[in-house]
Amino acid sequence: MNRIKGKVRYQDIEGGIWLLEGEDGVQYQLHGGDRSLYQDGRKVTVQGQVAQDMMGIGMAGPLLEVKSYE
């Protein structure tokens, strides 16, 4: 389980994807979580797992499966 601090950002590529610009310098792609997480510019700390066995059409970084956030 990872705990990642960062900023939620919407990017209009591949029809629209949600990223977490981590303070660790990594750009994650958000997966899961509820609607209120997905606000462009929101600062959050996400608890989740970096999925090693998933891929998608976004291709903009590791997929972060959200377990909880604050």
Binding site: A51, D53, M55, P62
Partner: peptide, 13 residues
């Protein structure tokens, strides 16, 4: 294929 992920996978390879 317009999809991908950052990690290699033996199945996919």
């Amino acid at each position: 294929m317009s999809l991908g992920g950052p990690f290699p996978s033996k199945v996919l390879a």
